[in-house]
Amino acid sequence: MSNEYFPDSDEQINDDEEWVSKTQRKREVEAQQELGAKITLLNKEQVEQVPMSDELRAAIAEAARLQPRSEAIRRHLQYIGRIMRNEDTEAIEAALDRFEAGKQAHAQIFKKLERWRDRLILGDNSDLQAYLNEDGGADIQHLRQLLRNAKKEQAQEKPPVAARKLFKYLRERAESQLQL
């Protein structure tokens, strides 16, 4: 006895390739909502760089107006997830990946500058010379003054005001080199 709901073992179901489980569909919907939520965390300049429809852009702008951690924002993120079904998610993910890569590069530069600051304060003239070899445009007199103040401050166990000024100078030098 053959039933239309339970095919005989001899019959082949041709829809196997197109069939998607309910769980898989839920995962895809949640992934789209998460992607939409990531977009809402971007600043205005970054949002403008993300390729999206006007409808999604308006929904993202509306999300910025809502209170964080409220029921309204949760529902709005679900709405954004529904809009995301019609968007080019690969292009959006690529844009978000570019922003993340830039953030990681910035963090690496920041850590490098922190290491230079600590090395210069704890080191001697050879460390200063190594930094000057790397950054030939640095103001040597100003850098020596900042180092003297930071070392003096460290010896007297004062708050690291001069060390912060030294770091600020190193950061400004790194930014000026990146702009060249």
Rank of each mutant, 00 (worst) to 15 (best):
L41Y: 01
R57V: 09
A95Q: 14
L113V: 06
L42E: 06
L66N: 06
F99M: 02
S21F: 10
L66S: 10
D97M: 11
E55I: 09
G36S: 07
W116Y: 13
E93G: 04
A101D: 11
Q67E: 15
I109T: 15
I92V: 14
H76Q: 07
H106Q: 13
E100I: 02
K44H: 09
W116C: 03
R69I: 00
A107D: 07
G81I: 04
I73D: 02
A58V: 04
E34L: 05
L96G: 03
G81W: 08
R75I: 09
R74W: 05
A63F: 02
E34K: 14
E93L: 09
A63T: 05
R117F: 10
P68Q: 09
Q67F: 00
R85Y: 04
E71C: 01
G102I: 00
E55Y: 09
R117V: 06
S21A: 11
A95H: 10
N86A: 15
K111M: 11
R85C: 12
Q33D: 05
Q32N: 12
H76I: 04
E18S: 13
W19M: 10
T23D: 14
R69H: 15
K38I: 02
L96W: 01
R65L: 11
S21H: 08
Q104T: 11
E48V: 06
L113P: 02
G102T: 03
E30Y: 08
L56P: 00
I83K: 07
Q49V: 00
L35N: 03
Q108G: 11
T40N: 08
V47T: 14
E87F: 07
E71T: 12
R115V: 08
S70D: 00
Q67R: 14
A58M: 08
R69M: 14
A58L: 10
E114M: 02
D54F: 00
Y79E: 07
E34F: 04
V50I: 13
G102D: 13
P68C: 03
E48S: 13
E90L: 13
E48R: 08
G36I: 05
K22R: 15
R98M: 05
I92S: 02
I83F: 07
P51W: 08
I60Y: 04
I60P: 01
A95I: 11
Q32G: 06
L66A: 05
A101G: 10
